[in-house]
Write a protein that binds this DNA or RNA. Structure first.
Lengths: 320, 320
DNA sequence: TTGTATGCGTTATCAA
DNA sequence: TTGATAACGCATACAA
């Protein structure tokens, strides 16, 4: 691939002059300018981003650490981030932690090797102090998306609040026993349970950590006795599986049991019964997170932590 | 971030010696080796990948150009590629063309700027010769994944063959009219139609280019007259929407109409009725594509084009 | 307005 | 076994 030095030779000028032209510096004679531009175009010059990055300025790279891109929600997040970053001239290096804390740690090192200008992360554990440490070592700004992390700028949806909304909704719909099915102890559940307690149903809420489909069926069978059961799924995929399991158990929805998912995946409106869900403002989150990260990149130095909780929205459908 | 030169000073050796130690070159006195390693560890040294890449060796970056990562299938592909690439020490720069040919072109320039070692691409148009041109300019190897591209190493599933399998299946199931609903003229449809012709149903197959949900409903209403209708959806998302539209039209599935999707997305088995689909060996494709790309990276120079069509598999469920 | 010189952090070549 | 030195491609400071 052709370099500035080579163009300089071809155009009979010095390399810094080529640099000036290509960077739009106006202090160059028009004739030289044109000669250089023509030559660059002819040879389809592309700047060497590595050299540029090495030289000290920016790399225009953002590291994006996700938990699982095969989850439709995060895929949408990734897409929105990529779009937003590109608008501002950044490219994305992508990593999948697969909910593995070790990978998360390891990828952070990789990210440092490439001298990314900043990092967007979906932190696996919101509560842990790991990220505070990480961020210090990283010496580039980090913004948490989707969930908040201790000690990080965070653009996220208030999951506890969303959990509370779900609880309120299920109670209004007349459910009297409650079940949360999710991947792990989760602030959604905390908010869910808190709200149920406030409403006087604190002792009627159970929490199941999901492992596999048979386990879901078992949990449901155990929870279904008499009272109408309101089920809160940690995400739409669980919601889908729960609907399927209830069908198998011949439980009527939303009659004997109601189900509400999380993330409002595209599929949920097409299911039968269509799945109620909690919708997150993905595009807005991506926009805010990228924009905050760019700000931090362009204004280095200490800075007050951003805590920007957005609000989820209930999308009520047939399943509740 | 600490550099080799700084470590050199701290350890009272020369910078190349540090380089040797950190690269595992054995021609270094054990005591020096330990001193350097200790110092590197203490300061959490991470190599500057930009400098390394600039110097001439590899960048250990792969460009990944996708059409749309928010499609569950491609999200799975992206994940598998990332996993496979990481196993071999590569990181991923990700791009979403959003089925936009201009973006595709533009991203290729970005990829060149970062001097990636190679590119994995889901080409938007399989038939066009664009990629042949692109690959020449790129001067790094390119491998097409998922679809084959003219003039590129290609690891893909034979969509025409898969379309034929679908046709055969629908005919065996007793459907007598046929409809393909997909994003655009597609080799799936070509194979589907060819097989139907062979079986004597050539004049009973229609092709609908999908735009929005109302349009699907209209198309279905138009196609449902008397004979049982076998519907082939270009992907599972369309399949889902079609099932939903049929419910709305009160058409029984798989009785009056049968539906089979494409990609065998995770959700399809949980739908009601569960959705028949065509499953593609994603992990194997990713593994083969990455492995081919790495081979080409490690063995530069001209080389016979790889054409590695894998085979799809029908997953028959309730919807047919 | 243009060119010369220097440095970014590596690897590689060559001497010592 | 170790250390000087150059080179990769660019941006920047400075000189002309």
């Amino acid at each position: 691939m052709i370099t500035m030095t080579e163009i300089a030779k071809l155009a009979h000028v010095s390399q810094p002059t080529v640099s000036r032209v290509l960077n739009g510096n106006m202090n160059v004679a028009p004739e030289i300018r044109e000669r250089v531009l023509a030559c660059a175009k002819e040879h389809d010059y592309q700047i060497n981003a590595l050299a540029k990055g090495l030289q000290g300025s920016r790399t225009n790279l953002m590291g994006v650490l996700l938990t699982d891109i095969s989850n439709g929600f995060f895929a949408d997040v990734a897409k929105a981030i990529e779009t937003e970053a590109r608008k501002r001239g950044y490219s994305i290096i992508l990593f999948n932690s697969n909910y593995n804390t070790e990978s998360e740690r390891e990828y952070l090192d990789v990210v440092r090797r490439y001298r990314v200008d900043g990092v967007l992360a979906v932190p696996i554990r919101e509560t842990s102090m790991m990220w505070r440490e990480y961020a210090e070592k990283l010496d580039v700004p980090v913004v948490a998306v989707t969930r908040s992390a201790n000690g990080l700028d965070s653009v996220y949806v208030d999951h506890a609040e969303a959990g509370g909304m779900v609880a309120g909704h299920l109670v209004r719909r007349g459910y009297e026993n409650f079940l949360f099915i999710g991947k792990e102890y989760d602030s959604k559940y905390i908010g869910f349970h808190r709200k149920l307690s406030e409403l006087g149903y604190g002792d009627r809420a159970a929490n199941v950590v999901y492992q596999d489909s048979p386990q879901i069926t078992e949990a449901l069978r155990g929870a279904l006795h008499g009272r109408r059961l309101g089920i809160f799924a940690g995400n739409d995929i669980y919601g889908l599986r729960i609907l399927s399991a209830l069908r198998e158990l011949q439980v009527s929805v939303p009659g004997e049991a109601g189900v509400i998912g999380f993330d409002d995946t595209m599929m949920s409106r097409y299911l039968n019964p269509s799945l109620s869900s909690v919708s997150q403002p993905i595009a807005r989150m991506a926009q805010k997170a990228v924009s905050r990260l760019v700000y931090r990149i362009e204004h280095p130095g200490p800075c007050e932590l951003l805590d920007d909780p957005l609000h989820a929205e209930l999308v009520i459908r047939q399943s509740t």
